[in-house]
Design a protein around this nucleic acid. Sequence first.
DNA 1: CGCTGCGTTGAGCTTCTTCAACGATCGTGG
DNA 2: CCACGATCGTTGAAGAAGCTCAACGCAGCG
Lengths: 228, 228
Amino acid sequence: MNLTRRIAAIPLFAGLNQEDYDELTMIVTDQEFSRGQTIFSEGDDGVGFFVVDTGLVKIFKLSPDGKEQILHIFGPDEPFAEVAVFSGSAYPAHAQALEKSRIFFFPRKAFIELLRKQPSLALNLLAALSLRLKKFARLIEDLSLKEVPGRLAAHLLYLSNQQQDAQAVQLNISKNQLASLLGTIPETLSRILARMSKQGFISLDGTLIRIKNRDELEELAAGEKKLG
Amino acid sequence: MNLTRRIAAIPLFAGLNQEDYDELTMIVTDQEFSRGQTIFSEGDDGVGFFVVDTGLVKIFKLSPDGKEQILHIFGPDEPFAEVAVFSGSAYPAHAQALEKSRIFFFPRKAFIELLRKQPSLALNLLAALSLRLKKFARLIEDLSLKEVPGRLAAHLLYLSNQQQDAQAVQLNISKNQLASLLGTIPETLSRILARMSKQGFISLDGTLIRIKNRDELEELAAGEKKLG
DNA sequence: CGCTGCGTTGAGCTTCTTCAACGATCGTGG
DNA sequence: CCACGATCGTTGAAGAAGCTCAACGCAGCG
């Protein structure tokens, strides 16, 4: 596909003019990453930010003994590491491709130039960061105030809404990765899925999870109830 | 003090011209809050954002059974609830004065107008939000990957750096509030402070905490070691 | 075909929370 | 200015949630 047109289709760049798109096309580079490949590591020099073209990327933190907490999972059209453009020079977390992915890269300096000229780009970016802050706030709330069953229930309901399917949810990541996203470990996740299944709230079929009792899941997610 | 001049001194508004300051002065209102008074609640209509003039404000989430997780504590010159200006219309958390405070309020619409005209204001705001995202990422990391002693050690070191005093740290909030900030409860915090004290890492004197073994605290904070 | 990563299950243990009690402190109204 | 109530801070004992360690089946892939 024509690169300029591809870039113009990214929501973050909505509302710019042709000249801006040309300029973005000039400064962008793209790169292929294979499944599991590192895009950048925490502490690396934050030379620019990225947008997913195709594929799936995780942003995560690591503890000294190797436990991982996923902060975000980004798919096509979603920007990541914008923070590095503004504050400080080092990436504050790790980024890795979860599957074969094609990633756009925008170098910092050229982008800031454009930003200074284009208030609508700045506003788009502000909206994107705001959304991200809200998601972080919810993650903090979940980690601190909810137990794992509540977090899992909330996540299943979230996926169900996103996928427009009230009956079933298709996991797009492995259960190991889901555990890391929920701030727990695979063993605990597995046990809790089994308990939910035993209680008849869900049924399991590989990476497909059928929702059999939405109300109970919602009470769990709200912390109004405990999983028996 | 002259209001326009006070506003011009807020770092968020650095780099604007006199006209902008006059406009900000036109749209701003200010209000006194007494200790413990609610500024807004989660879900309230996000009609604008705030800047602390004097005092101390906490932003927090609540669980159904009343446990609290503090997201931020803001002092003079720090803006809060900017997120409400951009994304969605509801405040995503609660805000309450920790002490008698004077707070500036900027209504949403008028501010967005100014933002559209002033790229440097947008850039300032982007920098502020970026910083906040980084802090959130660290909080998530702490909650998920560190145990309470590690979080406490990290926080003490952070305060020590901020206060430019390698010897001692003066808590500006109650230990109850500190527990909520660290994602735990007062009992647990109290026990861990006592253990740290017994190990000779710190010594306690009310809200003054003397740091007696910085190296050990740093190892705790990094998760390289456990508290005996 | 073997190997590696994924997913599951069991047993034991650590950490943290809950519940309860109590002294100290603070602020406030009488 | 004192007295009282509320909040703060601490400590103990018991319980729950989740983690660690270990073992094993299974699928996918080189």
